[in-house]
Design a protein around this nucleic acid. Structure first.
Lengths: 327, 327
DNA sequence: CTCACTTCTGTTAGCGTTAACATTCGCAGT
DNA sequence: ACTGCGAATGTTAACGCTAACAGAAGTGAG
């Protein structure tokens, strides 16, 4: 910076002013400085800048298993939105979901001097940890449930569960079976609740949900159980990967979809359209969730004073394909 | 830090020494300092530290579409390995793959003061851009082809193509059709080359490869073409997603897999095992690729002097399932 | 008891930037 | 020409840390 100042024949502070688009710089001076910057190939040191301004223009993201389509898409949306707003994104992917893990991740990011944090916290324990932790940095939880003081952006899982179940009842099915996600996951809970509420509202019996862990294998195993029962005509599976396992199990047992049993998934992963048969599912707009979470976070960072907690809900939509049919 | 020093009755420099595990500190003094740190809840400011040491302990990652399973898994492996080594990870996901995009991403990360960069550069254009760019920071390319001066970590795509094709010939197929990935992708090229070499070596005719873009839809369309041809008995599809589309197309046309046609995919995504039929495929260990790329990068960062360019190749393995059968 | 030498601790300076205040410049109004 | 005032620029002092050197305390030998 000193070199640039010398080259342009001004003080280093004037260079700083040009860089920060301060209004009180004569345009001729500005031009001379810009020229010197170009000539010397100068780039300002953001670390020094962060030291004095207390703002790093970096956001932290805490996530769990970014290998899955949902989290990966959400994180992608977050990164794109953050960069568009001129922020860097620092990521921490956790393996375990305990309180200590979340605490460590937050501390780690706080140490690095991030300006705010997005926690993709789909498990109850993560949301809980987040709610308990006294944390002074702006924070947004994605799928964070009733996360205490922090703002939340999420997809309306309950509504998704209702749509899936409602779609199947509309097709004339007497009742709908459910293969649920792990009980620690808020998303799994929301879908179960939506499913149950529609059945109750329609006065239909609600069979005991089968347990899954989101993996195709767990869907496969649940599917085998269902295949050996006779009065099953409709199944709402809590995600598309498990639905794939279910389809596989049904195929093996000679159960025809959708002729004998209708199946609805959740997520609308890119593969779903090409399952056999193409899967009717509930689409979640992960990209929108990511973008919204950054919007909420930046609002919190930039409008310092107002700490009002926001809650933004993204609606899911039914995507009708060939795995569901009229009874 | 000054507060801690006062609390412990020492100078700030002694506190710094304790924090940096300098050997020449009396253990009694060290204990007193640690106690003061605990009591005051002091955490050192990494930004100030980075300013003076010139090391941010942050690594940059440039990637393309982290929504896909491969890149997502690789980035996950990178993040885990980096954090285990005490480094932060800053991510930039590019949409476009042109030279300017890569240049911007590298500049962006360089500005932020990262100590090194991993570029997940599966496209020829990205690898090219990387090779051309004069860049002084330690850099590693993942799947970067013959990327000029930079070190490369990759899966042996050529060998994978050979294994897939060899497996099908071993089963007695006269020849093997191929649905390839986009021509800009190095991985696609490697697989094509491996496939072709085995056919040539065996003196078999090599049919013109069908073009795909990695998406299930493109696989579906190529599959429809193949279904209408009569002498197709074996297909090597360049990734599992396209293979899913192929299976779908075959199912629709009444072509039975593996009875009439054998299909081999590539990647071994978690879903493959539950396709109908379960897919024989070539497994890539993305996690290992991520880990290795960090190892290579850290070696370059820490052993400053030696700029020897490394090239680390991870072997793929065949995973036999039900989509291939003896002819 | 002093000297040389090691081990530990303190003092000073500086990393590259921005904030705050000080100064200079130019121009309008009297 | 002189005052006053805002716009443009310069000067100085941080930000929180580590490096380099300086000084104090302890240790063993002559």
């Amino acid at each position: 910076m000193a070199d640039v100042a010398k080259e342009a024949g001004v003080s280093h502070q004037t260079v700083s002013r040009v860089l920060n688009e301060h209004p009180n710089v004569r345009s001729e001076t500005r031009a001379r400085v810009m020229e010197a910057i170009d000539k010397l190939g100068y780039r300002r040191n953001l670390v020094a800048r962060a030291l004095v301004t207390k703002h790093s223009r970096t956001l932290g993201v805490v996530s769990f298993d970014t290998t899955l389509y949902g989290p990966a898409s959400t994180v992608y949306g977050i990164e794109q939105a953050a960069r568009a707003a001129g922020y860097f994104v620092s990521i921490v992917s956790l393996k375990s979901i305990d309180r200590a893990g979340v605490r460590d991740a937050l501390d780690y990011l706080a140490d690095q001097g991030v300006d705010g944090i997005v926690v993709v916290a789909p498990q109850r324990s993560a949301a809980q940890a987040l709610a308990d932790l006294p944390f002074d940095k702006p924070t947004v939880a994605v799928e964070g449930g009733e996360a205490g003081e922090v703002s939340v952006v999420c997809v309306d899982q309950y509504e998704g569960g209702r749509q899936a179940t409602g779609h199947l009842l509309d097709l004339g099915h007497e009742t709908v079976w459910h293969i649920r996600g792990p009980s620690d996951w808020l998303e799994a809970e929301g879908r179960v609740a939506g499913w149950r509420s529609v059945l109750e509202q329609a006065g239909r019996p609600a069979p005991e949900p089968l347990a899954g862990d989101w993996s195709p294998r767990s869907g496969y195993e649940a599917g085998r159980s269902l295949a050996s029962m006779k009065d099953v005509t409709a199944v709402f599976v809590a995600n598309d990967q498990m639905a794939l396992g279910v389809l596989r199990a049904f195929t093996e047992r000679g159960v025809r979809v959708p002729e004998q049993v209708s199946v609805v998934g959740f997520d609308d992963i890119p593969e779903s359209e090409f399952f056999s048969p193409p899967l009717t599912t509930i689409r979640q707009d992960f990209g929108a969730v990511g973008r919204h979470s950054i919007e909420v976070l930046l609002r919190q960072i930039e409008g310092q004073g107002s700490h009002e907690r926001e809650r933004l809900v993204v609606p899911p939509v039914v995507v009708r394909r060939a795995s569901t049919a009229r009874r």
